[in-house]
């Protein structure tokens, strides 16, 4: 089985273009002993959706957090359009066009929807004072026209009082508002209804057409298969498969994932 995957890695066509983000030999230890990633090479090309898959604890969220600047790799390098860049904080990653929906740390419960959406990137007037009116209007527009959330009446509702799906929708709304070059989505639909999940999957395909790059982490292989152009399988912190959609089909993919 491992043989198959190795050929698959080689079979993945080397694209002529430089990837937007390229990570080389990424290793991550937590607290010096827990190895979450080992020697992972990961790239994000322009205008593609990568399905990042793997078992619980495989290291998917760790990889996402390294790209988003929240965690620093123990070893390895990150290149943005071929230029080595240190993602020393999430701010640096954002400045490089990366917008993230995390699996578990997106929202601040004791703040309202509007303040959550703009948190850290507030619209201000002079001297850092909040332009509440402007933020209000933008949030209103966003929730009315772009990412409508079932049961939301106003951007002033406290996030802590929302349902799991509504919270996830607020995270999505924020990512859509600030989307730039790359969207990292760590199980963004785990709490959404079937209908909203489909709408979301359609939406990210449109974003790819607009030129965005998207990394989608999901345990639902059908969702990944539906939208992704490439699949990247992690197992116990190591890359075991990096294959284009054209090189595989859903049965083979399922088999490989289950085997690991």
């Amino acid at each position: 089985m491992s043989d198959t995957s190795r050929t698959d890695i080689k079979a993945a066509p080397q694209r002529e273009q430089t990837p937007y983000i390229e990570m080389r030999n990424i290793t991550k230890y937590y607290g010096g002993t827990i190895r979450a990633l080992h020697d992972v090479n990961f790239r994000i090309n322009r205008r593609e959706i990568v399905g990042l898959v793997g078992d619980n604890g495989a290291g998917k969220s760790t990889l996402i957090k390294i790209i988003s600047g929240v965690l620093q790799p123990t070893e390895g390098q990150i290149f943005v359009e071929g230029k080595e860049t240190k993602f020393s904080s999430s701010k640096v990653a954002m400045q490089n066009g990366i917008e993230t929906i995390y699996q578990d740390m997106n929202l601040i419960d004791c703040m309202d929807i509007m303040r959550n959406i703009f948190c850290g990137r507030e619209t201000t007037t002079s001297m850092g004072f909040l332009d509440l009116k402007e933020m209000q209007e933008r949030a209103m527009h966003l929730l009315k026209n772009e990412v409508t959330i079932e049961g939301i009446r106003s951007p002033e509702q406290l996030v802590g009082n929302l349902s799991g799906g509504q919270k996830q929708a607020v995270s999505i709304a924020r990512a859509m508002f600030f989307k730039n070059q790359v969207l990292l989505l760590d199980e963004p639909t785990s709490a959404l209804s079937v209908r909203e999940t489909q709408a979301f999957l359609n939406h990210i395909q449109r974003l790819r057409e607009e030129g965005l790059s998207i990394v989608l982490v999901t345990h639902n292989i059908f969702h990944a298969y539906q939208v992704a152009d490439r699949f990247f399988l992690l197992s116990q912190g190591e890359c075991v498969l990096d294959v284009d959609k054209s090189e595989t089909d859903i049965d083979e993919l399922t088999k490989i994932i289950v085997a690991h």
């Binding site: 904080s89 703009f118 948190c119 850092g128």
Partner: peptide, 22 residues
């Protein structure tokens, strides 16, 4: 009314989310 006040609430409300938001 100031963005730093917003950051104070965010830091105390969910320090990991606040850090992830830059």
């Amino acid at each position: 009314r100031h963005k730093l006040g917003n950051h104070i609430f965010a830091t105390g409300g969910n320090v990991n989310a606040a850090r992830a938001l830059g």
